[in-house]
Design a protein around this nucleic acid. Structure first.
Lengths: 146, 146
DNA sequence: TGATTATCCTATTAAATCTATAGGATAGAT
DNA sequence: ATCTATCCTATAGATTTAATAGGATAATCA
């Protein structure tokens, strides 16, 4: 399951990316428009700033804004920062590798080998989607619907 | 993350599938060979029996055994029984669908559309792997290594 | 028939993780 | 100065996961 943190974080990034201007947007605005608990969102945006996705400005007229072009923000890096490993078991994780203590031989482990395939398939999806791609998808759908 | 339940369950199924004979195997044997806490494994095997994957026999000479051919056991159904939904958000789940309460329009949701792609990629992996396939994979790797 | 064996089943505990909030500190704008 | 909005740490509450306990049930075999 995707954590709420990741879900909210993605929605917030998309919200900022959809604005033409890269001006600061207040937490309160994002929270109310996207139905996200404000204090929770605050902590998420903070971590997105610390990991280089967002910039911020304090005081009146302050808020958060994207510091990269949406087309340069890959889903792989967003997911890794918000959700953690893309792999479903640590022993097949590229960025968060850990050995399983119950498994003497990874190559002989059915779970290991299956989960490598699952990881690779998820990676291929995340790699071919940038923030620009996912907001474009919803725009297409929206125009179709109206 | 894959739950231990799923991991243990898959390992147990593979253990049973690797045996040529479909004779009952005791929980204790599977648990010790696969490094799985015995009581935990007991509850997992019980649920696999109730969902039609395993048969069981009580008393001396008893245990669990596969009641289908490994090539007829799809990973999609195993994962759904042990882990639950394959989708990472309920709103894109085929078998466990639920509406998100924070999301007024699914088609306009970036998370929704991204997670449909992730779900489909995972599904394609699970669909093309049966229990027979995943034990064959490890046999190949093993013979390469030795 | 009675002892032994192994699954059956429910309940419960312990641990970990996730979600959300509290409350004050800091810094910028006017 | 005052107001505003982010910054930051700590913590509470809820949920889920992992594992265990302990006895009931049924099959085998002497």
């Amino acid at each position: 399951m995707l954590s709420k943190k990741t879900k909210y974080g993605l929605k917030a990034l998309a919200f900022l990316a959809k604005k033409e201007l890269r001006e600061p947007v207040q937490i309160a605005e994002i929270a109310s428009k996207e139905n996200i608990p404000q204090k929770f969102l605050e902590s998420i945006l903070l971590s997105l700033r610390k990991t280089g996705f967002l910039g911020s400005k304090k005081g009146k007229g302050g808020g958060y804004y994207l510091i990269k072009n949406p087309s340069e923000i890959q889903m792989t890096s967003v997911i890794r920062v918000l959700e953690g490993p893309i792999a479903m078991v640590p022993c097949v994780s590229l960025n968060f590798y850990e050995k399983c203590d119950d498994c003497p031989d990874e190559n002989a482990c059915v779970v290991h080998n299956l989960m490598i395939q699952v990881r690779d398939s998820a990676l291929s999806v995340y790699r071919k989607n940038t923030l620009a791609d996912i907001i474009a998808d919803t725009k297409i759908v929206k125009s179709k619907g109206s």
